[in-house]
Design a protein around this nucleic acid. Structure first.
Length: 276
DNA sequence: ATGACGTCCTGCCTGC
DNA sequence: TGCAGGCAGGACGTCA
């Protein structure tokens, strides 16, 4: 499931290829993937626009086009953006095909069809639902240790659901939250407000570390994730907690446990990550 | 403010 | 072998 490091990897691999190219036409196979405007208008509106800039906010990929319009893309769980030759066989679950003026294609593939694409005036991107309430970028300066300390103090929820809340902090999903909590040695069910100053410091560093590592290794490919060149990431082999049920903790050897926390499968070491 | 739950959707896994 | 049922999950809506 694409989280911040995976979306950032898609952004980087796609940018290499499509920056400066013109979208000549788009073929919409599954109209519901387009949130706004409706599919017909989308196809007319996007025609002959040039890719000016590739951005990202949290898990949202932003493609800024010429003449004041932008694409807002959320891949959700299984969305993929694939830059490829038109001769290549069209994968099952291909929902959109953008034709580019260099003869190549950009395809949107999504097994579960949860992902969404919107096209809005560039000036309105930050007003779009989901983006307007988004928390700070964890790898930017406004996500400081002081911010985390201050914001966590008044919360009456468990730390894991809080970290998954995109209005609290942008970009973390189930995998990187489990990894950050494991590195910081904090149990996912700890009440946020009870974290000590030392734990806040560890958690703040751990969040940045696991995200940077994820980007450095080009994302985590558990099942479906690939970048814009169709390449799997390498971060899955570095995971310390997520998906390692019953395997020995790489820090202490204790078997990793799995438990639902806030409705999400959560992996943690019962020895390293004490619940109190 | 918070949590619980349903919704979307397909593929995979388990159990019979 | 085949099939039913459960599960996974990001964001969002509804309800308590």
């Amino acid at each position: 499931m694409p989280e911040l490091p995976e979306v950032e990897t898609v952004r980087r691999t796609l940018e290499k290829h499509i920056l400066g190219l013109k979208i000549t036409t788009v073929r919409v196979i599954t109209p519901k993937i387009i949130r706004v405007p409706d599919a017909d208008e989308f196809a007319i509106l996007i025609k002959d626009r040039t890719v000016r800039e590739m951005g990202r906010r949290g898990k949202y990929l932003l493609i800024h086009l010429s003449d004041g319009f932008s694409l807002i893309i959320h891949l959700r769980m299984t969305g993929q953006l694939i830059y490829c030759d038109p001769q290549r066989e069209t994968a099952k679950h291909t929902h959109l095909v953008f034709n580019l003026n260099n003869g190549m294609e950009l395809r949107y593939v999504d097994i579960r069809q949860f992902g969404r694409i919107a096209m809005v005036p560039t000036g309105e991107v930050n007003d779009f639902p989901g983006l307007t309430t988004l928390g700070p970028e964890p790898l930017e300066e406004d996500f400081s240790r002081e911010f985390l300390k201050k914001e966590v103090r008044n919360r009456r929820t468990k730390i894991k659901p809080l970290l998954l809340d995109q209005t609290f902090l942008a970009g973390l999903g189930n995998i990187y939250v489990d990894e950050a909590l494991h590195q910081a040695r904090i149990h996912p069910e700890r009440l946020a407000a009870t974290l000590t100053a030392r734990e806040i410091t560890l958690l703040h560093q751990a969040i940045k570390d696991v995200l940077k590592s994820g980007i450095e290794h080009r994302g985590t490919s558990i099942k479906d994730y690939v970048d814009a060149e169709g390449m799997s990431g390498g971060n899955q082999s570095r995971l310390q907690a997520y998906g390692r049920f019953a395997k020995p903790c790489l820090q202490c050897g204790m078997a990793i446990e799995r438990k639902k926390v806030g409705g999400r499968s959560s992996y943690y070491c019962p020895r390293c990550q004490k619940s109190k």
